[in-house]
Amino acid sequence: MHHVSLEETVNLAILAGEVMLINGAETSRAEETMDHIAWACGASAVNSFVIPTGVFLTVSNMEGRSLTAMRRIKYRTIDLERIAKVNELSRRLVDYRIEFTEAQNLLNNIAQERAVLPAVISIGASGVIGGGYAVVQSGGSGEMVGGFIAASGVSWIASLVTGFHGGQFIYEFLGGLVAAFIGILLQNYYSELNRDVIIVAGLMPLVPGMVITNAIRDIIAGDLLSGISRGLEATLTAVAVAMGVVIALSFGK
């Protein structure tokens, strides 16, 4: 391995942390990845600090110089595959299975690849979630189709709203509203359908699974600051969905 300068080390490590956090990794994983990468590049001391909205890193080298970098995270998405890729990359770098320059190129590719899930696939997957949940909740074939329609309607709203970069929680609120309206409408036309099962199935894609998991894992790892803020995010998401459903139900009684 050729000599890696302090600047190169910090740039690689903080990019890895940034990619991880943006794609939904928990705090301790982002911190550990940056630490491992910096140690593997020959640092003598590493301090990393990650909160849901920012990444901080200070690396010192053998000559006693140290360098601090910070990145502000504004948008977060969900892409578990990228997290797995960066995780794998840091392991290989630590075990000296890849060279520094190769790792740099790989990480730049991972960071830059356009990996937006096609709308058709995300709408279809949401529909399957809704239909599956309707069957699990003892719904018949009618409820299954209804759940599919409600959940894919919610996902369609998501693809519209995310295009505008609106504020937080708008999508969840609209999603709750749409799922409840679809349930009420379907029951108006086909009175034998169970409205409740359809609405619940339509709400399933709105469950903030990533946020809940990260909140739990941050609390376990002792990252209380991130754990609390993610727990609050999950709670507010649930409240937004509930508000949407309540408003639709009280209009459509």
Binding site: I78, E81, A84, L117, I121, S122, G131, V135, V136, G209
Partner: peptide, 23 residues
């Protein structure tokens, strides 16, 4: 009915995996 529910639970979890981009 149980078999249908098991299949539904499997498909439901698989669709969640796709939505969250599980490798």
């Amino acid at each position: 009915v149980l078999a249908a529910k098991i299949v539904a639970a499997f498909l439901l979890s698989g669709a969640i995996g796709i939505l969250y981009r599980v490798p």
